[in-house]
Design a protein around this nucleic acid. Structure first.
Lengths: 161, 161
DNA sequence: GTCAAAGTACTCGGATACGCCGTGTCCGAGTTCTAGAGG
DNA sequence: CCTCTAGAACTCGGACACGGCGTATCCGAGTACTTTGAC
């Protein structure tokens, strides 16, 4: 099981965006420079966030990305789905119906849910639930608590560069 | 986030193996035919299960695979790790230390754990916990409950083919 | 009839190819700011 | 001095390559059974 690398980038960028002054847009070049990431590729990830309605984008000078919702309203689940897609990790291909199994077991026409798929679905639901409970605001708060000066430094850098 | 397809195959095969008589080995060709899967590739997956100590393999006539532990002692987590690897889904690359972020935030030398990584790790731990609580025996029991005749049919087919 | 040995059939296991998707890059479309000319 | 217009700079967004890993396949190594011949 593996998440795309862009998820990490997107979360950190959302946290940074939550610290710049309200209404100010940050170009992707700044975000990329801040974390030492490839600009064009990060742009691709930010586009995905924009399509998901998490950030809003604006072209031209003084343009860039900004959060389109309050940080309290953006969960890690939202970001993960925006970047990584909403397809479930365990995809039931229905192999219990293929081959001779379909003929033997006698559930050809019946609507019996796949027990294996259910088990994995339950586990994945727990995962999604945990991520849905964590917000950008929550993470930002935890970071400020662990390193009180960091947010001001970050805000200052984004303002003067 | 995506699990390898082989995980589904492996789980179903383990359940089937739990239904054949004790001490009887099933060749991979039979398992593949039963579910309509490519034989050689399924063999690869079964090898992974063997390396993980979940099944034992035996060459030659009357050879094949059998469970090397009681079905109660095999969790879905064991199977998932055997096939999909034990690497965690969210891999923290430490981008908060790259670029200018490392110089700005001032946690260059400090040992502050990454808040983002912690959040994802917690969610993933919940996922692993759920899978670790589900065993092959448990799934087999649930399947028998939903379709009482299936196990006997499956056992019969594996015995006479 | 019994035993042994060679041959045969069967099964796993690793080495080998193919294809898709994640990763990375580039250039064009659209927008805003600026500067200069005319009134 | 004010206004309008043309140009330039900036930024996003989609179109275009590259590489790695998952998917798929094949053939050789090893094992057990069977058969055949001799004693």
């Amino acid at each position: 099981m593996k998440l795309r690398e862009g998820v990490e980038w997107a979360v950190h960028c959302c946290i940074n965006l939550s610290w710049v002054p309200e209404g100010r847009a940050v170009p992707v070049a700044k975000l990329a420079e801040f974390h030492g990431l490839p600009t064009a590729y990060l742009n691709k990830q930010m586009n995905a966030l924009a399509r998901a309605g998490i950030v809003s984008s604006h072209s031209g000078p003084r343009g860039g990305f900004r959060l389109s919702r309050a940080p309290e309203e953006i969960s890690l689940m939202d970001v993960a789905v925006a970047i990584d897609g909403q397809a479930q990790a365990f995809l039931c291909t229905g192999i219990r119906h293929h081959g001779v199994a379909g003929k033997i077991t006698g559930l050809e026409g019946r609507r019996v849910p796949c027990t294996v798929a259910q088990a994995f679905s339950t586990a994945e639901l727990a995962w999604r639930h945990h991520l849905a409970g964590q917000t950008i605001a929550g993470l930002a708060h935890a970071i400020r608590k662990a390193n009180p000066t960091a947010p001001d430094h970050i805000r200052h850098w984004f303002n003067h560069n």
